[in-house]
C-alpha cells in the first residue's frame, strides 16, 4: 500500500469526472465558439473582430497595471508595519484587513459612488469650503480607485504572510555586518518577500483585468473594459456568442501568459536565494 494513501484512487473519480465535465469541456466550448460562425462553420472572423475592441483591451491592461502598482506600493509598507507589531495586534489587523472582503463586492463598489458623486460626500464637504464641485465619478481615476479598493487585501495578505516568516536572525546578521536600515530593507527584506509580492501581483491583476462591474459603476460609459465588452456581447443574444467567446479566449490566454511569466520569476528568484 502506498505510504501516503489513505484509501483507493477510486474515491477521486467522481471529482475527476466532475472537473472534466464542468471545467475542461466548457473551456473547449469557448475555444469552439471562438472559431465558428453561429451555424457552426469554421471561421477566423471572430478573432479578426477583436481589433474592434482594442481600445477596451488597452484600457483594461493599462488601468489594471496602474491599479496593481498602486496596490503594491501602498500594501508593502502596510505588510511591513504589520510584522513589526505585537502578535495579538497582528492577528487583529489581519481580521480588520479581511473583514471588508465579506461585504458584498457590488455594495463595496457602489459605496464609492456615495463618496465620489457630484453631490457626494467629498464634494459636499468641498463646497462648504467653497471649492468645487470636482468631477470625481465617471473618470479613469475612479475606476482605478475601485480596483485598488476591491482587491487590496489580496495584496496585503500574501506579502504579510511571506514577510512574517522571514527569520529575524537574518536581519540581525545584516545589521551586525554593518547594513543600515535602508540596506537591510534592500538586501534582505525585499528579496526574501519577493514570492509574496509576485503572488500578490497576480491575485490583484487577474481580477482587475477581467472586471466588468467596477468600470460600469465608477467609470460611466467612457471607460469600458474588456469584461464590459464580453458581458455586453453575451447579453446581446446567441448571435454574438461567437465574438464574445473569441474575446474570452484572448482574455484567458492573456491571463495564462501573465501567470506563466510570474511563475517563472518566482522560480528563478528562489533559485538565486538558495
Amino acid at each position: 500500500m502506498n505510504k501516503k494513501g489513505f484509501g483507493s484512487r477510486i474515491v477521486a473519480s467522481p471529482y475527476i469526472l466532475w472537473a472534466a465535465l464542468f471545467v475542461i469541456v466548457p473551456l473547449i466550448f469557448v475555444a469552439y465558439f471562438a472559431f465558428t460562425t453561429p451555424d457552426g462553420a469554421f471561421t477566423l472572423s471572430n478573432i479578426a473582430q477583436i481589433a474592434k475592441y482594442k481600445k477596451a483591451f488597452f484600457q483594461s491592461v493599462l488601468y489594471s497595471l496602474i491599479a496593481t502598482i498602486i496596490t503594491l506600493l501602498i500594501s508593502y509598507p502596510m505588510a511591513y508595519f504589520m510584522t513589526k507589531m505585537k502578535v495579538t495586534a497582528q492577528k487583529m489587523i489581519m481580521v480588520i484587513v479581511m473583514l471588508p472582503m465579506w461585504m458584498n463586492f457590488l455594495i463595496r463598489t457602489y459605496s464609492w459612488i456615495s463618496i465620489l458623486a457630484n453631490k457626494g460626500i467629498i464634494n459636499t464637504f468641498l463646497s462648504r469650503l467653497g471649492i468645487g464641485p470636482l468631477k470625481l465619478i465617471n473618470t479613469p481615476g475612479a475606476v482605478i480607485l475601485g480596483m485598488v479598493y476591491d482587491f487590496i487585501p489580496y495584496m496585503i495578505l500574501p506579502i504579510y504572510t511571506v514577510m512574517s516568516k522571514i527569520d529575524d536572525s537574518l536581519i540581525e546578521a545584516a545589521s551586525d555586518l554593518g547594513a543600515n536600515s535602508f540596506n537591510r530593507l534592500k538586501k534582505v527584506i525585499i528579496p526574501l518577500s519577493f514570492p509574496g509580492v509576485i503572488s500578490g501581483i497576480t491575485m490583484v491583476f487577474v481580477p482587475c483585468v477581467s472586471t466588468f462591474y467596477i468600470s460600469q459603476k465608477l467609470g460611466g460609459n467612457k471607460n469600458l473594459l474588456i469584461g464590459d465588452a464580453i458581458e455586453y456581447l453575451f447579453n446581446s443574444g446567441p448571435d454574438f456568442y461567437n465574438v464574445a467567446s473569441a474575446l474570452s479566449l484572448v482574455l484567458m490566454i492573456m491571463i495564462l501568459v501573465c501567470l506563466f511569466v510570474m511563475n517563472y520569476f518566482t522560480d528563478s528568484e528562489e533559485a538565486t536565494i538558495l
Binding site: 477521486a12 475527476i16 472537473a19 472534466a20 464542468f22 471545467v23 475542461i24 469541456v25 466548457p26 473551456l27 466550448f29 469557448v30 465558439f33 487577474v206 481580477p207 483585468v209 477581467s210 466588468f212 469584461g227 464580453i230 458581458e231 453575451f234 456568442y241 464574445a244 467567446s245 474570452s248 482574455l251 484567458m252 491571463i255 501567470l259
Partner: peptide, 24 residues
C-alpha cells in the same frame, strides 16, 4: 495533471469561468 486542472477555476478569471459554463 489532476492538480493543474484543480487550479484552473482558482487561476482563471471569473468571467471566463462563468461564460464557459453558460455556453456549455
Amino acid at each position: 495533471a489532476v492538480m493543474s486542472v484543480t487550479n484552473i477555476p482558482i487561476m482563471n478569471a471569473d468571467i471566463v469561468t462563468g461564460v464557459s459554463l453558460m455556453l456549455f
